[in-house]
């Protein structure tokens, strides 16, 4: 009998701790599939960050380092510079990457560090019980914006992909979503491209994955997916923001 679906070799056979409806598990699988398909599991060194995905070192079946909050791009830089022929990636949430770790991500991108960044944007701090994140939408209720985020108190949500795409050091930047199977497949393609960019020595690659947090958003998993589609996608438009592998004027999806 032909097997058509199985656990990627790059995922361990361990039950994940994520809440029902959380998309971290899906995104882990996409990363693992990319490592398998490119045949780089044994060359990969992953950096787990601080957030709900902190235990990623238990789930990826490759060498892993766990980094302090926001510092994953610096840790990745430290490794990649001394092991330039290995594949180094970080897996970070929006609090980690877009708040406490802004300096590290911006400078890793500006230097054109040859690393791959998986940036999971769920518009909230999941791990610490649902506080406002730098990507929390205006009007969105969180435990620290109980009446909804306002411009007056908290300013505007940050669009990291657009911001980082302005830096010359970035080679590949795409924003994708996980709200339906078609978009999940597109997310998988983007993640594979972001690893391929590193393999081809193009420079810094980042995929921003829009993600849900149904528990802290106070919704059912399906409501959360719909909310992502109807509220996050309009503010965080999907698409490729930088692709240095494509020459000026060439069409790409």
């Amino acid at each position: 009998m032909k097997r058509i679906c199985q656990r990627p070799e790059s995922l361990t056979d361990v039950q994940m701790h994520y809440c029902p409806g959380c998309t971290h598990g899906i995104i882990h699988r996409l990363v693992a599939e990319a490592l398998d398909e490119l045949g780089i599991r044994e060359d990969a060194i992953g950096i787990a960050s601080v957030g709900c995905s902190v235990f990623a070192y238990n789930y990826f079946n490759c060498d892993m380092q766990q980094a302090a909050h926001g510092r994953a791009p610096a840790v990745a830089t430290g490794i990649k510079r001394v092991l330039p022929d290995r594949v180094v990636f970080t897996y970070q949430g929006d609090g980690d990457l877009a708040s406490i770790g802004v300096a590290e991500i911006v400078h890793a991108a500006a230097r054109g560090e040859s690393i791959t960044v998986i940036f999971v944007n769920n518009a909230i701090y999941g791990m610490t019980s649902g506080q406002m994140a730098p990507t929390t939408l205006l009007g969105q209720k969180t435990t620290t914006t109980p009446r909804g985020r306002t411009v007056q108190d908290n300013g505007y949500p940050i669009r990291m992909s657009e911001l980082l795409a302005t830096l010359d050091g970035t080679a590949y930047i795409e924003r994708v979503s996980t709200h339906d199977p078609r978009h999940v497949l597109q997310a998988g393609r983007a993640i594979k491209k972001a690893f391929a960019a590193q393999l081809h020595g193009k420079g810094f690659a980042l995929v921003e994955v829009l993600s849900t947090c149904s528990v802290n958003w106070g919704m059912s998993p399906q409501e959360a997916l719909d909310w992502l589609r109807d509220n996050m996608v309009p503010y965080y438009p999907l698409g490729v923001y930088k692709d240095a592998s494509v020459k000026e004027g060439e069409a790409h999806d």
Binding site: A74, T77, G78, R81, A103, E104
Partner: peptide
């Protein structure tokens, strides 16, 4: 060897963490 000017001391020590973890003298 590798010399790199980090963006801050915070980044520098975390680069050290990475490279030390990767097994080199740093």
């Amino acid at each position: 060897g590798v010399y790199l000017q980090a963006e801050s001391e915070v980044a520098a020590i975390n680069m050290v963490y990475g490279a030390a973890g990767a097994g080199v003298r740093v």
